[in-house]
């Protein structure tokens, strides 16, 4: 496992290069964080032009837990999760106030390189989006770009590890050279998870990862998420109540851009404090 160590070392070096420079500016936030928190959003507001999409959110994401963000369509769930790794930067007229701190460092401060941030905070999208190349090359794509391996053997190891972690290895180990598009939808999504894992992120954002999948594949992805939280911090956006109840440690209910209720699972499902949460959970609100 020398390789993994070497990789971790390289990644942590990158991390320190990326984020440590702004330490002085953010010491105040640091003191507010409890030890288990990885991400803390404080007074977070997001605007697209004139429309106010996220309103004054305060939320923490805990280490090696699954935090589920749920809410009806258009409530701002996707916007919220995409601000966590700065995927919204390129969106026209995107504006953000307040702070998102990753390990105490404001990820929107000038010192933070949004590209390197994405190495620590990976993302899986609603629709499987494998590149139209081989299974192997999909997983190797990130590590190649970021030069995480010295030679072919190391790359093989990275690819195998990532595919094993994504519970896809057994199904594809004999056809790594096959085109990724030949996989089923569920396999494609697990491949995308493997691709994200291959650059060794610490936090994985999943934006409705099972919404385009059949029930069997959905179950597999859910099992996988529970398995992954041993090593990673997960943030999951979903409007599938059952999925939320199955995998969540913490649930944040978002409605109309505001955080209505945050609670531990299963408390929030059994005993919602707010009327609108109860309505949503019982299916009266869509």
């Amino acid at each position: 496992m020398d390789l993994m160590e070497a990789q971790q070392e390289r990644m942590s070096k990158e991390k320190s290069e990326t984020l440590e420079r702004s330490d002085e500016n953010t010491s105040s936030i640091n003191s507010q964080m409890s030890p288990g928190d990885r991400i803390r959003m404080s007074s977070l507001n997001v605007y697209y032009g004139n429309s106010h999409v996220l309103k004054d959110l305060n939320l923490t994401i805990e280490d090696r837990k699954i935090t589920v963000i749920m809410g009806p369509s258009g409530c701002g769930k996707s916007t919220l999760i995409r601000t966590l790794n700065r995927m919204n930067d390129t969106v026209h007229a995107f504006k953000l106030t307040g702070e998102i701190a990753l390990d105490g460092i404001n990820i929107y401060s000038k010192e933070v390189n949004p590209t390197l941030l994405k190495l620590r905070v990976g993302m899986v999208f609603q629709k499987p989006n494998p590149f139209p190349i081989s299974i192997y090359d999909n997983v190797a794509f990130g590590p190649k770009i970021h030069k995480l391996s010295k030679n072919r053997a190391e790359m093989d190891e990275i690819v195998m590890q990532a595919l094993k972690q994504a519970a896809l290895w057994e199904e594809v180990k004999d056809r790594l050279k096959a085109n990724a598009l030949s996989l089923s939808g569920g396999q494609q999504q697990r491949l995308c998870i493997a691709r994200a894992l291959a650059v060794r992120p610490e936090i994985l954002l999943l934006d409705e990862p099972a919404s385009a999948l059949d029930p069997g594949s959905t179950a597999k992805v859910q099992e996988l998420m529970v398995e992954l939280k041993k090593d990673l911090t997960l943030v999951l956006v979903t409007h599938n109540m059952q999925q939320a109840a199955t995998v969540a440690n913490k649930v944040a209910f978002l409605y109309n851009g505001s955080l209505v209720e945050v609670g531990q699972s299963p408390d929030i499902f059994e005993n919602p404090q707010k009327k609108v949460t109860e309505d949503y959970i019982s299916g009266r609100l869509t």
């Binding site: 790794n85 390129t90 590209t115 941030l117 993302m123 999208f125 989006n129 590149f131 770009i145």
Partner: peptide, 18 residues
């Protein structure tokens, strides 16, 4: 070019040029 593919790349930490 599908936006999904570009976003996939961006989420893997690719720069605009990459």
């Amino acid at each position: 070019t599908p936006v999904l593919l570009k976003e996939g790349g961006r989420a893997l930490g690719l720069t605009d040029w990459e």
